Amino acid sequence: MTVHRRVRHEAGPARRRRSRLALAAIAVIAVGLAVRAFGSATGLDVIAKPAGDACYAVLVVVLVALVRPTARTWVVAAVAWAVCAAVELAQLTGVPAHLTKAWWPARLVLGTTFNGLDLILYAIGVALAGGADAWIGRRAPSRVSGAPSPR
């Protein structure tokens, strides 16, 4: 019976975290699309492209955390960067470019052409998101003891 209560108690914070992460994902998607539209409308792709890549990485961090809300921040960040790197390296195969011809929204997720600089921009986005998550996690008191969370 004690185990049941503990699992039930942990489900509450994880559920609240998932709700916040889902809202964050929506916000990051909106910001990313706005950055893309701004860059296209103003011709400032030099700024919009790197900002969009960083937003992409932030979104991946949020999605990884959404899947594993109780994972440590560094694990979420490492997995998110690995996912971003895998997507970028897949562009060397030409498969993402082919998929975007069949369905244009795939371009927003998979990209079309490899750029090594994107790997650095993804690392920056992951670091910013991971740092923000760690900072927020430290500021949020634990529901059990009232002490700061160990995230």
Rank of each mutant, 00 (worst) to 15 (best):
M1D: 13
T2I: 14
R6H: 12
R6V: 14
V7K: 11
H9E: 14
E10K: 13
E10W: 15
A14Y: 01
A14S: 14
R15A: 14
R15Y: 07
R17I: 05
S19E: 14
R20W: 15
L21M: 05
A22L: 13
A22Q: 06
L23P: 05
A25E: 11
I26T: 15
I26A: 15
A27D: 03
V28W: 02
A30W: 10
A30T: 13
A30S: 12
V31N: 07
G32Q: 05
V35E: 00
A37P: 09
F38G: 09
G39F: 07
G39S: 15
S40Q: 14
D45L: 11
V46Y: 13
I47G: 04
A48C: 04
K49A: 13
K49M: 10
A51T: 15
A51R: 08
A51S: 13
D53Q: 11
Y56K: 03
V58S: 03
V58I: 14
L59V: 09
V61M: 08
L63T: 03
L63P: 04
V64Q: 01
R68Q: 07
T70C: 01
T70I: 07
R72E: 07
W74M: 10
V75M: 05
V76W: 02
V76C: 07
A77F: 07
A78H: 06
A82M: 04
V83G: 04
A85R: 03
A85I: 10
A86W: 08
A86N: 02
V87Y: 07
V87I: 15
L89K: 05
A90I: 02
A90D: 09
Q91S: 01
Q91I: 00
L92C: 05
L92V: 10
L92M: 12
T93A: 10
G94W: 03
V95Q: 09
P96M: 05
A97F: 01
L99V: 01
T100P: 01
T100R: 00
K101I: 12
W103N: 10
P105A: 11
A106P: 00
R107P: 07
L108V: 05
L108G: 02
L110G: 06
G111M: 08
T112G: 08
T112I: 07
T112D: 11
T113A: 13
F114D: 11
F114P: 06
F114L: 08
N115F: 12
L119F: 06
I120T: 15
L121Q: 08
L121I: 04
L121Y: 12
Y122W: 02
I124Y: 06
G125Q: 10
V126D: 02
A127Y: 04
A127W: 00
L128A: 14
A129N: 02
A129Q: 01
A129H: 03
G130F: 00
G131M: 00
A132M: 04
A132T: 01
D133G: 08
D133H: 09
A134C: 09
I136P: 08
I136H: 14
R138N: 04
R138F: 11
R139T: 01
S142D: 15
S145I: 09
G146L: 10
A147F: 11
P150E: 04
P150K: 09
R151G: 05
